[in-house]
Design a protein around this nucleic acid. Structure first.
Lengths: 341, 341
DNA sequence: TTGAAAGCGTTACCAT
DNA sequence: ATGGTAACGCTTTCAA
């Protein structure tokens, strides 16, 4: 059987296409009886409006595009689930594209989204300077919300977390547990890293402690093997210092979780010899050995709020001047064995 | 400035719309000079074809829908990355919807995909009986490939792994390491679970060992807390047996990885007291303590092959009788500390 | 080699 | 209250 369209419905019902269309859209111009007849017949034939045609006509696609650097860690999965949930709730669907932390791929993803005619874009840039020109061009026509990596030079809604607070709280906890010498392991030098480091500094200041530059470590997160090797070296170096650190703060999920593995390999006792805490949203925190103290980000909220802010902007038609919000959600700290006294 | 369309291009170039369209599509009917002129002008104005209109016309969307139960573990992320990569390669984009292991949500996701007019569907059903009728109806018009949970009553391409072999290899390794009493921890009773158990049985048979029903354990994976509690109980029960197991095989990612945490909590030494191995694609295998021996699935291949089989089917227009393949990729075993002798 | 026109399935304006 | 018609942006016959 052929596909059920407005046309075929109209023919079968012996009405005009426009009447059927209006009836299905519950227009005030159509009588209740007609509406009922049409609706019943339509569902009988299992009529499904062609969304493509609708979109072509209305210029709306009911689709939100998501462009993000990766989706390999629970952090991203959780955000994406939050987004899908919220989008579904408001009758939008989502299209996801991963930039793989690659500026070229990011550009092509943004372009694709643009071409495809999404109604709005949720964008987590790979860093604060990547594809700014393109994004600026896109936002002229398409609402965008920046999430997670919010230090991006675009005037629009942004949804992230209080990064500095996360690290501050972690350090504060370590200080309270009597540890004073805290190293910090960072990934790529990005805006977010800087923010989190600021919290580290702030906590030190408040406690009248100097920040030692030799305690601030940068690692390349490209491959797991490389990361392990680098972290191992750094740890050995730190341990050889006259005043070795008593704790390490991990500044990103991958770093924090893998830190434990390296410590295990080096047979350094956590938390007895060195305590470990850091940003991490992994479900495995409880299952690691020792169980991992973490700074947890409200991923689900990040996702949901991003979506809602975006759809709000879309609905406001993107013209009326909007007060752009730079939303910073609080992180929470989960204490487990890896920082026990 | 208004949007650049074929029409506006044509007007500016003083040609007809069809000429411009053909030129851009590199039609043999158009002279090289014209083509060149059109192409150059188009890129100058940054012309982007309206994919919606194209799709409406051609009935193709260049979009693949993916419906899967969850995307919280690395296993799924890796598959999805493989799919995106392969799709991109063949000029398709992907739309992802998560069924959250919920039959109702799965139905609505499938419906949404159907309405949205995807060219094909990659489907990982939540279990072997879920939404079979709907899927059967959809596949009448839309090519589908079943991945991962391939024990699904639909005649089409399927891409999964040699589940039995994975467990078989793991048991074999344990036997070779001198361990004879092996427990197995399963999640939901599904087709896949059964397959993997078959490998467990097979290995026992081959080694002339009886399978003890008290060694086969089922856990509910709904929540992490619940899982931990259940696993803890089972482990305590097993340890109290006159002949407690010397090893445990985990039959799914979540189970295997969290097993380590429970063992740690119970202060059972792995691998000295009990060895642990199981299906798991986590990147953290190396970072767990002890590092985890795993049965790894070729997730990237699953993703890529699924996409390619699907697009092949789409291209063949779905009519010409196709030999459906039931592809089973081999798993690989990674030995680490958790099964050391 | 080029162009006119129909049509994909909708919606929305304007008549009736 | 209902229907005719144009239009969204494109592809594709068919004619010139």
């Amino acid at each position: 059987m052929a596909k059920t369209t407005l046309k075929s419905l109209a023919a079968a019902l012996n009405m005009s296409v426009s009447t059927v269309s209006k009836a299905l859209n519950d227009s005030y111009e159509i009588s209740e009886v007609t509406k009922k007849r049409v609706r019943e017949f339509a569902r009988e034939l299992n009529y499904q409006p062609n969304v493509l045609a609708q979109s072509l006509k209305t210029g709306k696609t009911q689709t939100i595009g998501i462009v993000l650097p990766k989706m390999t860690s629970p952090f991203e999965s959780q955000i994406l689930e939050g987004m899908q949930h919220a989008a579904r709730e408001r009758n939008y669907r989502v299209v996801i594209m991963v930039s793989m932390e690659n500026e070229e791929l990011e550009r092509s993803a943004l372009r694709a989204m643009q071409d495809k005619g999404v109604d709005g874009l949720l964008f987590c840039p790979i860093h604060e300077n990547s594809n700014v020109a393109l994004a600026t061009q896109i936002i002229a026509n398409t609402p965008m919300v920046i999430f997670d990596r919010t230090d991006y030079p675009l005037e629009t809604h942004k949804v992230g977390v209080l990064n500095a607070d996360g690290t501050y709280d972690a350090c504060q906890h370590l200080f309270e547990s009597g540890r004073r010498r805290i190293a910090v392991f960072c990934g790529t030098k990005q805006g977010i890293t800087a923010k989190r480091l600021a919290g580290y500094r702030h906590a030190h200041e408040e406690n009248g402690l100097a920040v030692r530059s030799e305690y601030i470590v940068y690692c390349d997160v490209k491959t797991i093997e490389g990361l392990h090797a680098e972290m191992e070296q750094h740890i050995l170096r730190l341990r050889a210092l006259p005043e070795p650190p008593e704790a390490i703060v991990g500044i990103a999920d991958t770093i924090t979780t893998h830190l434990l593995g390296v410590m295990a390999k080096l047979e350094i006792k956590v938390p007895e010899e060195i305590a470990v805490i850091g940003f991490a949203n992994t479900d495995l925190a409880l299952s690691l050995n020792p169980s991992l103290s973490t700074i947890r980000q409200p991923t689900k909220d990040i996702g949901e709020i991003s979506v809602n802010k975006l759809i709000d902007t879309i609905d406001k038609n993107h013209r009326n001047q909007i007060e752009w919000e730079d939303i910073k959600l609080p992180t929470s700290i989960q204490l487990r064995r890896s920082t026990k006294i």
